[in-house]
Design a protein around this nucleic acid. Structure first.
Lengths: 201, 201
DNA sequence: TACTTTTGTTAACACTGTTAATTAAATTGA
DNA sequence: TCAATTTAATTAACAGTGTTAACAAAAGTA
């Protein structure tokens, strides 16, 4: 009797329709405004049916997080396979990473918990510009004393800032507590590379 | 008549008490669980009084965001002033940045919209490890072909990943739309520095 | 057909931010 | 000092949110 098989198939279809409806919501209004109620409304079922297929809202987000990392991994692998040498591969993967992030913004923001609220907020915080200025002035001095005096200070500032934020936020995502003192060598490694490239070259 | 002055002073105290109560909430349960109702409860006033001092919840968060950036700017400046050469300053500022982030985790997460949800999520996503493996294997190859064959591949992977994520997320925070093709030179700049340090040294 | 299991719905709970209408308090003017 | 006015604070509600217990309807099994 194929009844059991059909039921499994139907359950799978139902599950897919939930994810599909959720995805439409996300593309329209972002993760913040995704709600179980809206999904239920879109698939024209009552709210609790969704809980027959997903334990909670978090489980739905987890599904998309997995999908996102799978897509990213695929994109990186594909970029890697187009080159032979590891240096070229790392460069190609970097571009692929960048492209993935901005071509799949919703995925990326979910995967790394990038809250959009800060987006609107940060831009009206002049205090941030104070911080920028401290960084930029030092970068300018460094360039002035370096061999490559026509380096783009704003570019270098952006790089410096991004490296710092990247190190910190990846660390925060991966582990909850304070990072061990040893973890600072990651910072040391990354920033010494930057400074060397900035000053000595 | 000092009544007006007293009223202004009281209003300022009230405002401060709201922020103070909010901060206690944040330290206890994080940004996600901060609510107007809990603040009102803590200061033993009804809910709407809060709206006499802050336009909305976002305005309260904005206040803390400003404070956070001010603290960060101060920390950076202080670190900078302990050194004379720009290279040493940039290094010291990097450590100060790192320390600020982990000593003021709540501030940092608010300032850069780091959603904690991803924290719990990411750790149970095996798909992320697939992505890591693609990166790590390439890093390993690069090290094998480099002059410094006993470089720590995991450290280098972490650095590579952090640079990429930092560049992307800073870009996403600063501007809403897709970054122009020119913005890719930031990526090129940062990643070429990393690859050079990894392979050629 | 009668029984059992699965599936879906209604209604509610406990929250959230925000605001209109109303009452209480404080200040001002006569 | 007393009435009028302005300011401050409250109650109650609106429109949402995730989640779940209790119940009804449909489907499958004997």
């Amino acid at each position: 009797m194929g009844i059991a098989e059909r039921k499994i198939r139907q359950k799978e279809e139902f599950r897919a329709s939930i994810l599909s409806a959720a995805w439409v919501q996300v593309l329209t209004d972002g993760w913040q405004s995704l709600s179980i109620r809206k999904i239920a409304d879109a698939i024209e079922y009552s709210i609790p049916v969704i809980y027959n297929h997903f334990e909670n809202k978090e489980a739905i987000l987890l599904e998309f997080t997995k999908e996102g990392f799978q897509k990213l991994a695929d994109a990186l692998e594909q970029a890697k396979n187009k080159h032979t040498g590891p240096a070229g591969q790392l460069e190609a993967m970097a571009y692929a990473y960048w492209d993935f992030a901005f071509d799949n913004k919703e995925f990326y923001q979910l995967m790394f918990g990038l809250g959009i609220p800060a987006c609107d907020r940060v831009n009206q915080v002049i205090e941030m510009k104070v911080m920028s200025m401290v960084m930029i002035s030092t970068i300018k001095e460094a360039i002035a004393q370096s061999k490559n005096k026509d380096a783009d200070y704003f570019l270098k500032y952006h790089t410096y800032f991004s490296i710092l934020h990247g190190l910190v936020s990846i660390q925060m995502i991966e582990k909850a507590g304070k990072p061990s003192a040893e973890k600072k060598i990651i910072l040391q490694d990354a920033i010494s590379g930057f400074i060397t490239a900035l000053v000595a070259i």
